[in-house]
Design a protein around this nucleic acid. Sequence first.
DNA 1: GCCCCCTATCGACAACCATCAATGTATAGG
DNA 2: CCTATACATTGATGGTTGTCGATAGGGGGC
Lengths: 123, 123
Amino acid sequence: MGSGRVTSVTTLPLLSDAVVCCPPLSSAPLPADAAVPLAQAFSALSDPVRLRLLSLLMTADGGEICACDLVEPVGRSQPTVSHHLKALRDAGLVIGTRRGSNIWYAVVPEQLAALRAVLAPAG
Amino acid sequence: MGSGRVTSVTTLPLLSDAVVCCPPLSSAPLPADAAVPLAQAFSALSDPVRLRLLSLLMTADGGEICACDLVEPVGRSQPTVSHHLKALRDAGLVIGTRRGSNIWYAVVPEQLAALRAVLAPAG
DNA sequence: GCCCCCTATCGACAACCATCAATGTATAGG
DNA sequence: CCTATACATTGATGGTTGTCGATAGGGGGC
């Protein structure tokens, strides 16, 4: 990888506090305070545009796509796409890395795995 | 099961059309029209009360709980709990069965598995 | 038939959310 | 410094959603 010269690389701030850790719903009754961040995480998946963005990133070869190449495929305005990318970032589902004047997005597979684990059936 | 005499049994209507089938996001870019029902399904998981209801059902022994026993644990009014149970029913995540004057709810594990599959990483 | 319990539905209200146009901020190139 | 490009943020707006009180409807017991 690295097909072009890169002058600066910055990782955008990521709300790692929002990252969900994983007791399955089936292990014990979910306490009210644990339910809130979990619901926020699933809320990030509750929009068609965000699901499509995730899918685009997951199927991208190299595992990342420039933000500029995400606008046209989902058929929304640039600010709207930026808004959804922020939602995904805040949920810890994607990460953005600046390279030159572009920002490349990639999924955070651990976070997806955590959500999957929450839905796992009983032992 | 079957600790008491049952005079009538009715299965509440279930929107099986809303049931999600399972191509993982990682298999191909998600088309716009497929994204909508999927987003609705995840939307059912995007509320703390609904997550707690699901968790209560999943941890219940016998796998089901009377609706009357779901109100107090989640700390919401009866109409609100009923509203959330309808949302979970519409998403195909739970099913309600009338027995006498009570309605017993249980999770639909296949539907949870389908949502888990959607989040699965690339082969 | 009457009454009580259980559950769903209705109506209302406040809070939240997706969307876009306009604007702001940062980086790259001259 | 100036301009162009890429992305984020702001502000406004219409639609959706969570919540509760009040009400309706279905069952069982008497």
